[in-house]
């Protein structure tokens, strides 16, 4: 089990705020930290990896203390057995796929095995720049697997990829997590991604935990008693006398709908149906 309790002063768009977080991760769990950009998610991941230092707190992996501000313990990243997957993949451009893996751990048998498992073996002598974004991120995953990390830390790993590849890689990530018996912590602002991958979600806002629970309980609220409802964002409003007509983007589709005057461009809204009438609610 991994125990994490950290505090750190951060500087966001709206001035400074405290990242103040306390949670545990069970073995083999897939945990997601979900929140808007600038809420401190990435910083949290970097603190766990030892790439940044918390002002105060405590981090423990299966009884081994990584960080303890009271006892002045702070293991460097090299001494923490974490597998960090970066948003921009961070593959070494001077090394082939195979060399990237062997740099992590010089074990050819293991590298062959992992590359075959993630179906990258035929690309092993290619240089990273010749690969697609999706392939590069799979190589980055394979590379961290070389060291049997105690935890896989995924920092928005798929956000640079387009939708179709992203959804394929989500499946793959889930399989890798299962097949390699990993404990994973993903940071994401993509609701669908978190819903697909995570066993449990921690919702953070301005550095504080707002909610913890199963993705279903966190994301699927029923503030209107409709048959179905979708989250969307108002992207345009045409004014008329009594009502306005809004264009709302819901997961890539555009909907034109009558709204009342309170709704403004940029509002996040819940679009549902009640008694044959559309209902728009600000969230």
């Amino acid at each position: 089990m991994i125990k994490i309790k950290v505090r750190k002063k951060l500087f966001g768009y709206n001035g400074e705020f405290w990242l103040d977080i306390d949670f545990e991760i069970e073995k083999n769990e897939f945990l997601a930290v979900f929140g808007k950009s600038g809420s401190g998610k990435t910083t949290l991941l970097r603190i766990i990896a030892g790439l940044e230092v918390a002002d105060e707190g405590y981090i423990e992996f299966d009884g081994k203390v990584y960080f303890d501000s009271k006892k002045k313990i702070n293991l460097p990243p090299q001494k923490r057995n974490v597998g960090f997957v970066f948003q921009n993949y961070a593959l070494f451009p001077n090394m082939t796929v195979y060399q990237n893996l062997l740099y992590a751990l010089n074990d050819k048998k293991k590298a062959d095995e992992i590359l075959k498992k993630v179906e990258l073996y035929q690309l092993k002598d290619r240089y990273p720049y010749t690969l697609s974004g999706g392939q590069q991120q799979r190589v980055a995953l394979a590379r961290v697997l070389m060291r049997n990390p105690d935890i896989l830390l995924l920092d928005e790993p798929l956000s640079a990829l387009d939708q179709s590849i992203r959804s394929k890689l989500q499946e793959e990530l889930k399989n890798i997590h299962k097949n390699f018996g990993l404990t994973s912590l993903i940071v994401s602002h993509d609701m669908v991604e978190v819903f697909k991958l995570a066993d449990r979600v921690i919702l953070i806002n301005q550095g504080k935990i707002e909610k913890v629970g199963k993705p279903r309980d966190i994301f699927i609220e029923k503030p209107v008693s409709g048959k179905f409802s979708f989250y969307g964002e108002v992207i345009d409003i045409k004014e008329s006398d009594i009502f306005n007509i809004a264009v709302i983007e819901v997961n890539g589709s555009l909907i034109e709908i009558i709204v009342d005057k309170e709704i403004k461009v940029g509002d996040k809204v819940l679009v549902g149906v009640k008694g044959f009438n559309p209902v728009i609610k600000k969230v």
């Binding site: 974490v82 070494f92 060291r147």
Partner: peptide, 23 residues
């Protein structure tokens, strides 16, 4: 050199010297 390359090397357990020479 992108910061993430250096950090990736550190999280893969490599020392500063090894990172300097190899990455």
């Amino acid at each position: 050199i992108p910061k993430s390359l250096i950090e990736a090397s550190y999280t893969l357990g490599k020392s500063k010297l090894s990172t300097l020479l190899n990455v």
